[in-house]
């Protein structure tokens, strides 16, 4: 699209762009090196004591200790455990919500809509605190329940948008061959909508995995708490940076691999997906794209909110 805005660059413009590019690389690399060097300088604290720089071996020797890695591993496992339980529950809740919202009975539809709006407009953290204090469930279940309800509400919206985007002939055909409305929804509409919305759902699960770190606040021993908080309390401030970098690396590894999976699935379901032709403006684009982009298109106005938390 940018190429249409102006004439195709000639040799001069291309050369100029290349020069700027090289200049940019030099600038960025220089800035990064400067940052690394500044962080590595020994620094004097307020009382005059000089501490070694951040890359000094004395700040990293804790990682020779196997126990440290064990603690980090247990933290990561706790994070994954919470994410897995919450993801399964969120899917179940999301399916229930989507049926409630798409129901023909106003007595079901309207309350579901109100509850859904309520859950989507509230911070997950507040929900965790609420569940922890009101139901006194312990931090694990408080985190799981809050994540499941919040992400379930968002997945429910996604599924509803998927059902709405189906051609109405699908439902009519199901009813015409004698299936009950519920059977039509379960066996005809829902499988197609689920498939269509799979990239969005997985993108939401990445968000869920990220959000497990909020359980840090209610005292669950997940990766952030055990890595950054407990370990650096135990070994002292000296190591807090080292622990931060390691925890960041673990989080990035987990989230990036899940994001990558989402992209692969988006590509596979997008290009030759199950023959569902989206109709209307609420339908996701038929071309595979970044799940986040599909997300905002498919769910309409209020939905991207969830994808960001």
């Amino acid at each position: 699209m940018t190429s249409v805005l102006y004439d195709v660059p000639g040799p001069k413009a291309r050369a100029r762009s290349r020069v700027i590019s090289v200049f940019g690389i030099v600038l960025i690399v220089a800035a990064l090196i400067a940052l690394v060097v500044v962080l590595g300088l020994p620094k004097a604290s307020a009382n005059g004591a000089v501490q070694p720089g951040l890359w000094d071996a004395s700040r990293w020797d804790v990682f020779n200790d196997l126990q440290v890695w064990r603690t980090l591993g247990i933290g990561a496992l706790n994070t994954l455990r919470m994410a897995a339980v919450a993801a399964i529950l969120a899917l179940v809740i999301g399916i229930l919500f989507s049926f409630g919202r798409a129901s023909e009975n106003a007595w079901v539809r309207v309350p579901t809509t109100v509850i859904l709006e309520f859950f989507r407009g509230m911070p997950v953290l507040l929900m965790m605190l609420f569940i922890l204090l009101v139901f006194s469930t312990g931090s694990f279940w408080a985190g799981v329940a809050a994540l499941a309800v919040y992400n379930g509400a968002i997945i429910g919206e996604a599924l509803r948008a998927g059902i709405k985007a189906l051609p109405s002939g699908q439902r009519e055909a199901g009813l015409a061959i004698g299936l009950t409305p519920i059977a039509t929804r379960f066996r005809i509409e829902f499988p197609q909508a689920f498939r269509q919305m799979l990239p969005i759902i997985i993108a939401q699960l990445v968000v869920l995995l990220k959000d497990t770190s909020l359980a840090f606040v209610v005292g669950y021993n997940e990766l952030l708490r055990s890595g950054n908080y407990n370990l650096s309390q135990f070994f002292g401030n000296r190591y807090s940076f080292s622990f931060f970098f390691i925890v960041l690396a673990i989080y990035l590894a987990m989230n990036l691999s899940l994001s990558w999976l989402a992209r692969v699935i988006a590509r596979r379901t997008g290009s030759n997906g199950g023959g569902v032709k989206p109709t209307g403006s609420t339908a996701p684009p038929s071309k595979p794209a970044d799940p986040n982009l599909i997300y905002s298109n498919a769910l309409g106005a209020q939905s991207t909110a969830g994808g960001v938390v």
Partner: peptide, 22 residues
Amino acid sequence: IVRNTPLTLVLFFCAYLLPYLQ
């Protein structure tokens, strides 16, 4: 990188580690 980092970790950095860097 930033999109795949939990917000809690970012704020942890800001609240605990930036003051440590004076």
